[in-house]
Structures are given as structure tokens and as C-alpha cells.
């Protein structure tokens, strides 16, 4: 029989807790530290370790039956997957932050400014809802350093504890949404998750 495949993060803030979550169902994952596919002892289950943003892609195409992914990824792009449930870990927020001494203090101050982000769609939606016109500068990573380099006036990024923001001389001014890890499955699949 075809194994049940579950896609989780290969590295990053959700990986450990995703593995713990799966173990709580009695799965004995054999090689969780290396390799792209982890087998499970005594069970016909395979764990796929993939890039965070690719998890919904695997699930919507049916290459994986289930996935554990942050809600922030699902908010950013439309995927044909259904959310099975929220998992209560991996909590974080998508926020807008500015340099400590910035004149930008409220949403309306963002009008006409440059905001760097790896979440352009979520940001665009937020700005539109608040009737703000601003220039969205899309960057893939290390968003926090962009104001320092004169590339942007504000950033929009995920934060958990706010440490990284602080380290880069930034302060949060607005919460856009809260995110946590979710269990997702293919939009056409009605498989039961490990029981």
C-alpha cells in the first residue's frame, strides 16, 4: 500500500515542534536529522522534509497527503489545500516595524513610504484594507537590515519574540495577523490523519 506522506519543514522554527507533534501520535521517525524522506518504524508513514514555502505545493499536488505549515504561508498565496486544524505551536506575528528613531508612528504615516517584505501579498492586502498607498519592496530574506541600508523606510516581517527586530534597531508599530502551525491536506482528499 502507498505510504501516508507528511510534509514538514526541513529547517527553521517549525521543524522541531512538527517532529514532536508527529511523535505524539506514536510515530517513531528513523532519520529525522538528515535526508529528504524519513521512514517510520513499524508504520507505513513517510516524512518529507521540504522548504517551508513548498509544503502547500507538495500537498496540493498530492505528492504529500498532509503538511504542517505556518498560517503565514497560507495567507500569502492561494493554494488548493484545506486546513485540517490549527496546532497551537509555532506562534508568530506578521508585523510592520520601523527604525527606532523613525518618524513613522501610525498606519497613516506609511503613506508613500517604502516597505520591504517577503510577504508582498499579505502586505498589499493589509495596505489596501487600510487605504494606504505605499511602495512594496520585495526581498527574499534578511528583511530586517533593509532600512539600515537605505533600501526601505519600514519592514513587514514575521516575528516571534521581537529579538531580531531589536537587534537590528527596529520597533514594531503594527500587527497584521497572528500565525501558528496548521495541519493541511489536499483539497480533494478526505483521508483521516494518523489514528
Amino acid at each position: 500500500m502507498k505510504p501516508i506522506r507528511i510534509a514538514i519543514q526541513n529547517k527553521g522554527r517549525l521543524k522541531e515542534e512538527s517532529v514532536e507533534f508527529l511523535k505524539s501520535f506514536g510515530l517513531k521517525i528513523l532519520n529525522s536529522d538528515r535526508g529528504l524522506i524519513g521512514k517510520c518504524e513499524g508504520q507505513n508513514v513517510e516524512i518529507l522534509y521540504v522548504r517551508h514555502g513548498d509544503i502547500p505545493v507538495y500537498v496540493q499536488s498530492g505528492a504529500a497527503d498532509f503538511g504542517i505549515v505556518g498560517a503565514n504561508v497560507l495567507n500569502e498565496r492561494k493554494f488548493y489545500v484545506k486546513k485540517n486544524k490549527s496546532l497551537g505551536f509555532g506562534k508568530c506575528k506578521l508585523v510592520i516595524a520601523v527604525p527606532k528613531n523613525s518618524g513613522i508612528k501610525t498606519i497613516s504615516d506609511l503613506e508613500g513610504e517604502r516597505i520591504a517584505t517577503s510577504y508582498p501579498n499579505s502586505l498589499k492586502r493589509f495596505l489596501k484594507e487600510n487605504e494606504i498607498n505605499a511602495s512594496i519592496i520585495e526581498v527574499r530574506g534578511s528583511v530586517e537590515i533593509s532600512p539600515l541600508l537605505g533600501l526601505s523606510d519600514a519592514i513587514c516581517d514575521i516575528t516571534q519574540t521581537g529579538e531580531t527586530l531589536k537587534e537590528n534597531g527596529l520597533k514594531k508599530i503594527i500587527d497584521i495577523f497572528e500565525s501558528e502551525a496548521c495541519l493541511i491536506q489536499n483539497g480533494f482528499s478526505d483521508k483521516e490523519f494518523l489514528n
Partner: peptide, 22 residues
């Protein structure tokens, strides 16, 4: 809005694009 923003001239294209592309 009448709001003005001064940016490095090398960022002009990115700045304008940032309003339309995302």
C-alpha cells in the same frame, strides 16, 4: 495626496514598481 518622497535616484524604478507589482 500631494505627499512627496525623496529617494536615491537609483531606486526610482523599484519604488514605482513597488506600488503596482506584488
Amino acid at each position: 495626496t500631494g505627499k512627496q518622497k525623496t529617494i536615491p535616484d537609483s531606486q526610482l524604478v523599484e519604488y514605482i514598481k513597488g506600488y503596482y507589482e506584488a
